[in-house]
């Protein structure tokens, strides 16, 4: 018998694994993150702050916040409705419905933008009708909203469905047998049990809504000050070789995603059951 426990790796294996992981994660995750801040601060804090506060940058920040403010409540309503239907009831075609909810995750973001161009673009299904009525969806804010709704569609639902399935229907049935109506049951019995999972889904949805690039890029038209979200603004500045500007706005987005990760980590620490694999 060797003195070390049979389920422990030898020290050199541990050292080898940890160094490989350290090198790999540095190259892929850590250095890119650090480089964003380094590039942003290349000429000091002043120019970076200046780049973040140009009118175009401010407009892009506002539009990004607006997008998230639309996408998140929509996602909550859809997610709770879908989870309520799927987890608390039996019906034919349920597993198909669950698969269909996940579809946006397997569609390229570019295709997500393309489909709305085909429907609402000037050559699309409703193109001439929209032009006649002077309604702009593509290359305008509504298109950005739609594309964002599409790419964030499954976030809350796929967080809540397994959680609510696991919790079963006992408490809701108990509430019903005591005379509670549907809304009362949802609000007083179900919601307290799913709030952390809901918050987790909202965090991820919010991060994606603020950060979406591909889908939004296709429908936005890149009109400065009007239809540029923060990620699109980063692209424009970058393509104009305004690296300090691009990386400064990018740094702002980085801070946002670090905040998301910290909140997510806290949530997982306090409520371990919320963690789900594979987003």
């Amino acid at each position: 018998m060797s003195p070390r426990s049979s389920t422990q790796d030898p020290w050199w294996v541990k050292a080898l694994v940890l160094s490989l992981v350290a090198v790999f994660l540095s190259l892929i995750l850590v250095l890119p993150l650090v480089s964003v801040f380094a590039e942003a601060l290349r000429q000091g804090l002043g120019p970076a702050l200046e780049a973040m506060s140009t009118p175009d940058a401010i407009a892009s920040i506002k539009l990004t916040l607006l997008t998230a403010a639309v996408a998140v409540p929509f996602n909550i309503v859809f997610g709770v409705a879908a989870a309520w239907a799927v987890a608390k009831h039996e019906f034919w075609g349920k597993s198909l419905l669950i698969s269909l909810i996940d579809v946006p995750f397997s569609v390229s973001p570019v295709v997500a933008g393309l489909i709305y161009v085909l429907i609402f673009g000037s050559h699309g299904w409703f193109g001439s009708w929209l032009i006649d009525h002077n309604i702009k969806i593509i290359f305008a804010v509504p298109g950005i909203m739609l594309a964002t709704l599409f790419v964030t569609f499954p976030f809350v639902a796929r967080e809540l469905i397994p959680l609510m399935q696991e919790q079963g229907v006992d408490e809701e049935e108990a509430a019903a047998s005591m005379g509670a109506g549907g809304w009362t049951t949802l609000w007083r019995v179900t919601t307290p049990n799913i709030r952390w999972g809901l918050l987790y889904g909202v965090l991820l949805c919010n991060a994606r809504a603020m950060g979406e690039f591909g889908a939004v890029s296709v429908v936005s038209g890149h009109i400065r000050g009007l239809t540029n979200t923060m990620p699109l603004h980063v692209e424009i500045l970058y393509n104009e070789y305004d690296f300090v500007g691009a990386f400064s706005v990018a740094a702002l987005l980085c801070l946002l995603s670090i905040l998301t990760l910290i909140l997510k980590g806290l949530l997982e620490m306090l409520q371990p059951q919320v963690r789900r694999a594979g987003h």
Binding site: G211, M230, K264, G265
Partner: peptide
């Protein structure tokens, strides 16, 4: 490290793109 592994879920892809390009 555990938190950082999720960075690609949280970081806007465009930011990742320019960071990797610069790196």
């Amino acid at each position: 490290i555990n938190g950082l592994v999720d960075l690609p879920f949280a970081l806007p892809t465009a930011v990742a793109g320019i960071a990797l390009a610069a790196l």
